[in-house]
Computed example of a mutant assay.
Amino acid sequence: MVKLDKKAAGQDNRTATQLVRGGLRRSQFKETSEAIFMNSGFVYDSAEEAAGRFKGENEGYIYSRYANPTISVFEDRMRLLEGAEAAMATASGMAAVNSALMSFVKAGDHVVAPKALFGSCLYIIEEVLPRFGVEVTLVNGTDLDQWKTALSKPTSAVFLETPSNPTLEIVDIAAVSELAHKVGARVIVDNVFATAIYQKPLELGADVVVYSATKHIDGQGRCLGGIVLGSEEFVEDYLFPYAKHTGPALSPFNAWNLVKGLETLELRVEKQTDNAEKIAEFLSQSSKVKRVIHPGRDDHPQAELAKKQMRRGSTLVSFELAGSQEETFAFLNKLSLVDISNNLGDAKSLITHPTTTTHSSVSDDLKAELGITNSLVRLSVGLENVDDLIADLGEALE
Rank of each mutant, 00 (worst) to 15 (best):
Met1Gly: 09
Asp5Met: 02
Lys6Cys: 10
Ala8Arg: 15
Ala9Gln: 12
Arg14Cys: 10
Ala16Lys: 06
Ala16Leu: 11
Thr17Gly: 09
Gln18Cys: 08
Gln18Thr: 13
Val20Thr: 13
Leu24Gly: 02
Gln28Thr: 13
Phe29Pro: 09
Ala35Cys: 13
Ile36Asn: 04
Phe42Leu: 12
Val43Gly: 00
Glu48Val: 10
Gly52Cys: 04
Gly56Glu: 12
Glu57Tyr: 07
Ser64Ile: 10
Arg65Asn: 14
Ile71Trp: 04
Glu75Tyr: 09
Glu75Gly: 06
Leu80Gly: 07
Ala91Gly: 14
Ser103Phe: 01
Val111His: 05
Lys115Gly: 15
Leu117His: 08
Leu122Phe: 14
Leu122Ile: 00
Ile125Asp: 09
Phe132Arg: 02
Gly133Asn: 03
Glu135Met: 11
Glu135Tyr: 07
Val136Thr: 04
Val136Phe: 03
Asp145Glu: 15
Asp145Ile: 03
Trp147Pro: 05
Thr149Tyr: 01
Lys153Gly: 02
Pro154Gly: 06
Val158Pro: 06
Val158Ala: 00
Glu161Lys: 09
Leu168Met: 15
Ile170Tyr: 02
Ile173Thr: 10
Ala175Thr: 08
Ala175Trp: 07
Val176Asn: 11
Glu178Cys: 06
Leu179Tyr: 03
Leu179Asn: 04
Leu179Ser: 06
His181Asp: 05
His181Thr: 10
Lys182Gly: 05
Arg186Val: 14
Asp190Val: 11
Asp190Lys: 14
Asp190Glu: 13
Phe193Trp: 01
Ile197Ser: 02
Leu204Trp: 01
Ala213Met: 15
Ala213His: 01
Thr214Ile: 08
Asp218Cys: 14
Asp218Leu: 04
Gly219Phe: 01
Arg222Asn: 10
Leu224Lys: 07
Ser231Thr: 05
Ser231Trp: 06
Ser231Glu: 02
Ser231Pro: 05
Glu233His: 11
Asp237His: 00
Asp237Met: 11
Leu239Glu: 03
Pro241Ser: 02
Tyr242Arg: 10
Ala243Glu: 13
Lys244Ile: 04
Thr246Val: 13
Pro252Ile: 08
Asn257Cys: 14
Asn257Asp: 06
Val259Ile: 14
Thr264Val: 14
Arg268Ser: 13
Glu270Arg: 14
Lys271Leu: 15
Glu277Arg: 13
Ser284Trp: 04
Lys288Leu: 03
Val289Ser: 08
Val289Asp: 12
Arg291Ile: 10
Val292Ser: 04
Val292Phe: 11
His294Ser: 04
Pro295Ile: 10
Gly296Leu: 07
Arg297Met: 15
His300Gly: 09
Pro301Cys: 06
Gln302Met: 15
Glu304Met: 03
Gln309Tyr: 02
Gln309Glu: 11
Met310His: 00
Met310Val: 04
Thr315Val: 14
Leu316Gly: 01
Ser318His: 03
Ser318Glu: 05
Phe319His: 11
Glu327His: 00
Leu337Val: 15
Asp339Lys: 15
Ser341Pro: 03
Leu344Lys: 10
Ala347Tyr: 05
Lys348Gly: 07
Lys348Pro: 06
Ser349Thr: 07
Ser360Glu: 15
Val362Gly: 03
Asp364Gln: 14
Leu366Gly: 06
Lys367Gly: 07
Ser375Gln: 08
Leu379Asn: 05
Leu379Val: 09
Val381Arg: 00
Gly394Trp: 10
Ala396Tyr: 02
Leu397Ala: 01
